[in-house]
Amino acid sequence: MKRARVVFAGAIHEATPFDGKLRLSSGRLVKEDLVTWLPPFEPQTAFALGLNYADHASELSFNAPDEPLVFLKGPNTFVGHKGETERPEDVTFMHYECELAVIIGKTARNVKKEDAYDYVAGYTIANDYAFRDYLENYYRPNLRVKNRDYCTPLGPWFVDRDDIKDPMDLKLRTYVNGELTQEGSTKNMIFGIPQLIEYLSSFMTLSTGDVILTGTPKGTVNVNVGDEVITEIEGLGQLSNTIINRT
């Protein structure tokens, strides 16, 4: 099953796709363009991976890391499907990052990779924008680069774990104004989902609602004000976002 969280007529609803429309939990059918999309769940601790695809690491002139390069994100940074993300005027390079987001479904501590999927509730798409101009070499990438307001679109759907046969074999694609600019496969992650859950839970407790953004493949290009950026993952749908000016 897949479900969204939407605002319709002044209230927040859970919604499922039905016949090209959205079916609210009350049973009412509404057109998609009449709702505002929220992130499909409220992220608790949010992890993101840097350099987790060998081709993207070499694109940025880095060697693939020996240990997962993990950073954290705050709740201010998430925005739903069809949301807007600001591009500051002084920035010369802002890039999208299409990423598979893995949502944790129960308390996890010292989990072995063989058991890791027992702790997964589902998946969604994340677009983990970065602003290269703001990179500094302290706890890099830092929050000014990765935790700006509304700079991490998430959605549209929370897709149940069992609906995705092999999350380690999904095509990822990004389109900027309809043109394909990024293409990869989750097959090429350096640290896959089971390894990441094993790694993180080896030193801290994960809980329901925590989420892991698993990194992005090669093909991150600069985007500008007015661009429509669609990040797509096989089986999870398409997440749309528009770049606006920050004044």
Partner: peptide
């Protein structure tokens, strides 16, 4: 190396809920 210059913006990190 690897810092190259002193920090300009505040350097932040998150202490997540398990901490």
């Amino acid at each position: 190396e690897p810092y190259n210059k002193p920090p300009q913006a505040p350097i932040l990190y998150i202490k997540p809920r398990n901490t």
